[in-house]
Design a protein around this nucleic acid. Structure first.
Length: 378
DNA sequence: AACAAGGGTTTAG
DNA sequence: TCATCTAAACCCTTGTT
């Protein structure tokens, strides 16, 4: 019985992308520890590591680490570089790479600034050897055109393609044919399964599930009890290597913008800081030819707990004034609630969702979609 | 029972 | 002061139809 129609899916993941972009324009950095940082502006070193090259990673630098910790880890390495993130530059590089990848198949999905899938079932006629040669060609073209390395995975669906790409990094290429899926997945530790993070991993551990193989034949009802009636069965299917999610462009569902305050707030003194955020989101909506129905705020407390509020409007909007006005009212709700719960706010942001793409004049649906994809990132 | 709205959690990069 | 930023998927509760 055929449960899933055979596909050939390629996952392309640009290696340590932001740091590699910095290495392109300053090749002398390649041999040094290189750390791309998001400075928050509170102090000279406050902020987090966005990504680091493999020289820095081997010395212990990790994504998400406080910049100060990375500085300590690299204290002995006077030559280490800490560069501020330059998103516009990475965006331009990414855009060219994505065009190149897209030229290999019309069935294309950009997952993030440095990651994409293509479905090459048709052009390969399901021959994985042909799929492999397309993967090699893409690696070669990206290297020639942009001097960037990437990791490529080829499999019968997105899950396997992605895990194959993760399997050999950097600059790898791994092909997993349908008949190899089980042997590939089964022995892997459960934390390697896409979608299983630290929280789920420790839950699985308590249930005696150590490997993906353990999960693949675990009782589905117990999984539903632990993870919910959607996620539980879904985890089991993934562990079996089953994934029917098609390669296709994802429509934008929400846009948000968040900043770190110079000082934690106990009152609404930061209202002025929100205005540029509302203008940014308004401009973004307009450039997408879109409007939103839901306006929300995000607050992260001094204890790093996230709080959200949102309201649904009775109409669509893309007006920055209207977005801002609604956000300010929502923030009031954090402060004038007669104080059972008091907290200080470290970071604040605004979000629009319920996004409605308007029909653009003289553009068909797919042109509309690609405009959308281009604006997806920052 | 089915659905919408609002808020929290987890994951990924 | 160690602790960025963006987006999606899912979970739960509550209220409405």
């Amino acid at each position: 019985m055929i449960l899933e129609s055979p596909r050939v899916v390629i996952s392309i993941d640009l290696d340590y992308f932001f740091a590699q972009c910095e290495e392109i324009r300053r090749p002398e950095l390649k041999s040094k520890p290189l750390v791309v940082c998001v400075f928050s502006g509170r102090t000279q070193t406050s902020g987090a590591v966005s990504t680091a090259n493999y020289v820095a990673r081997k010395l212990g630098v990790k994504s998400g680490m406080p910049i100060l910790s990375a500085k300590r880890v690299l204290a002995q390495h006077k030559e280490a570089e800490f560069l501020p993130i330059d998103h516009d530059y990475y965006e331009r590089v990414s855009e060219r790479v994505m065009q190149l990848i897209k030229s290999h198949s019309p069935i294309f999905e950009q997952v993030s600034i440095d990651e994409a899938f293509i479905d090459v079932t048709d052009s390969t006629k399901t021959d994985f050897e042909v799929g492999k040669s397309i993967g090699l060609k893409i690696k070669e073209e990206i290297l020639d055109a942009e001097k960037l390395t990437c990791s490529v995975g080829i499999g019968p669906n997105k899950l396997i393609a992605k895990m194959a790409a993760d399997h050999k990094k950097p600059d790898g290429l791994v092909v997993i044919k349908p008949e190899e899926v089980s042997a590939f997945l089964s022995p892997m530790p459960i934390g390697k399964l896409i979608g299983v993070g630290p929280k789920s991993e420790s839950k699985f551990e308590k249930m005696g599930i150590k490997t993906i193989g353990d999960l693949s034949d675990f009782d589905v009802n117990s999984l539903s009890d632990q993870f919910g009636k959607n996620l539980g069965p879904s985890f089991k299917r993934l562990a079996q290597g089953l994934d029917t999610d098609p390669v296709r462009p994802r429509p934008i569902e929400q846009l948000s913008r968040i900043i770190t305050l110079k000082k934690d707030a106990e009152s609404l003194w930061f209202g002025d800081e929100l205005k540029p955020l509302s203008i940014y989101l308004s401009d973004k909506l307009k450039s997408l030819n879109a409007k939103c129905r839901v306006v929300g705020i995000i607050a992260i407390t001094s204890e790093l707990k996230t709080k959200n509020k949102a309201r649904t409007l009775d109409h669509l909007t893309n007006s920055s004034d209207e977005i801002l006005h609604n956000c300010l009212e929502l923030f009031q709700g954090f402060f004038d609630s007669s104080g059972i719960e008091v907290f200080r706010i470290r970071r604040v942001g605004i979000r629009v969702s319920g996004i409605d793409l308007e029909k653009a004049e003289g553009k068909n649906e797919s042109e509309n979609q690609s405009t959308l994809t281009r604006f997806l990132l920052f």
